[in-house]
Design a protein around this nucleic acid. Sequence first.
DNA 1: CTGAAAGCGCTTACAG
DNA 2: CTGAAAGCGCTTACAG
Lengths: 354, 354
Amino acid sequence: METGVTSDSPSKAARATTLSDVAAAAGVSMATASKALNGKRGVNPSTRARVEQAAQDLGFYPNQQARSLMFGRSGSIGLLTTDLEGRFSLPILAGVESALRDGEAVAIMANASGSAEMVDRHVHALLSRRVDGIIYVARGTEPVLPLPDSIKVPVVYAYGPSTDADDVSIVADHRGCGRLAVDHLIDVGCRAIAHIGGPDDPATIGYMAARLRARGTLDGLAARGMDPVLNRPLFGDWTEAWGWEAVEQLLARDVEFDGLVCANDQIARGAIDCLAARGMRVPTDVAVIGFDNWAPVAQTARLPQSSVDMNLDELGRVAARAVLDPDGFPQGSTRVAGRIVARESTAHASLSTP
Amino acid sequence: METGVTSDSPSKAARATTLSDVAAAAGVSMATASKALNGKRGVNPSTRARVEQAAQDLGFYPNQQARSLMFGRSGSIGLLTTDLEGRFSLPILAGVESALRDGEAVAIMANASGSAEMVDRHVHALLSRRVDGIIYVARGTEPVLPLPDSIKVPVVYAYGPSTDADDVSIVADHRGCGRLAVDHLIDVGCRAIAHIGGPDDPATIGYMAARLRARGTLDGLAARGMDPVLNRPLFGDWTEAWGWEAVEQLLARDVEFDGLVCANDQIARGAIDCLAARGMRVPTDVAVIGFDNWAPVAQTARLPQSSVDMNLDELGRVAARAVLDPDGFPQGSTRVAGRIVARESTAHASLSTP
DNA sequence: CTGAAAGCGCTTACAG
DNA sequence: CTGAAAGCGCTTACAG
């Protein structure tokens, strides 16, 4: 649509405002303009004001690429992930992003959906953008092969640690979280606690978390001088169906229990549904807690479920700090603690004195 | 740990290999090295080979920042989102990312968790990185205020369209998807179909989608010459609890139905659970389909649920293409079609002849 | 086919 | 306090 604007020089639209435009507008040299805009001292206040005004008027954004060329750092870090679904990586990315923001850095995404070749290409792309570091979020909790060490920038492994103990890895404290879950159940009055685990098969994604969470439950019970309801946790997979079946197994074995630690929220959901179907009340008869605090399941279920939040957000923030200051971080795995999010499924009216 | 390596010059580690390093190693000028590496013609094959070898040996990655300075394009595009949870934005981002990758471009994330001021800062950060374009993924399906048009690079609005019809927006075809859902239910043999909607309150996130999906259901019914079970769809919110309650309402009204279109997967889940609790079999007595094909709910439920996948991935890819080639795209909203993902909840043995 | 020179947009010593 | 010059790493006409 033709409007009144007549001589809107086409080159104007094509080209972003540059420092020399600003300098010209303010009637100073580029050097002075640069100093003024960067708050360097030794610039006449009135000159500075003039330059700032000009920059404002022209909508000037300094070209970071040019600046990085000088500084040798790009102020961006690469976020390499192989976790397609993003279930775990997304909260981590969000954490990274927020921490970077404080340091004025920016995250460049690279989603390598699996193949080693893809990882390579993405590392290449990241490196050629001169990222100041790379955070690698692999698919699961299992240790991952480190990236080629020809990479000269700091690499931090998040969630799944590197198999190389010399690398810096930031992981979730699955085992510690198992203890938290038990403590919570005991605190709301449970006296007979069983653990329904995830997969016990090393080939399965998340196997490591399943083991550690189960271990943590046993730790927690032992610390409080209690025996688990079963001498061996039940292991299955990560699904609702398994949670349901596990409860049926418990019921069939005719053991008594009033608390269930389920290795994730979906298992917890299945367990809760099965208990309800069998006429048991949650949380009155049995309190149930899961892991991951995954909103779509734990929070939006008809019976809101208590869960151990793995603090993935914080994990991301820590990873960002680590990649920005690798020397300030210990090699090996740094564990980030989780926290209890209590909801209906453990809202026991605590049994008072026994 | 001290190893055999003695004179590993420290500056080597600090500084990435540069084109002039490569040129020196290959014994040619930078100009020639550059041409050789970029596959320009007019370079002696043996020279080219020598340069390539040197680049390989030295682990050379061309500095994109320097290249962009010349080309005037950075090969990166900004991904601005306000959808914290990432429920809808993540699949879109994945799509964008994959499409960009084909064009060798890269995505820079910027998660503005809401405030307009944050959006501003992030736009600023993106622009100073000289992104070639911005894809804005807002929180919901509602139209969003356009970014300031002082922005000189192409902006594409994804999922939630811009309120300005002159902007390029790529949205999901909620209404068309409603038709798809109905067609599917009819195809599996349903003859009495009700719609359980989302929120009817314009102030609620996703309200637009709720309306359009309901409209689509009515469209679909009309197209097949059928009346909806209720003359007005039920509206509530996006939760399981609402799905459950809606079914109770239907049952209370004593209407007959054998098919349910639920405005999202969680509503569908609640509906299915309620039907089961009331002794009705899904899908034998009632087939149920939801929207979003959200894996954690639709796919992992004990009864896997059919759903209309909004093809958010494709939406992201289209958005990426649009931002890379804005003139090739129409102003206003481009709708991306969805698709049916059939699972147990609609696995009707189709009624044969009536 | 090869290379010296200029330039992309900015910053930083170094003189004035 | 201000500005001319050199340089960050690369590419592209332009001579040779």
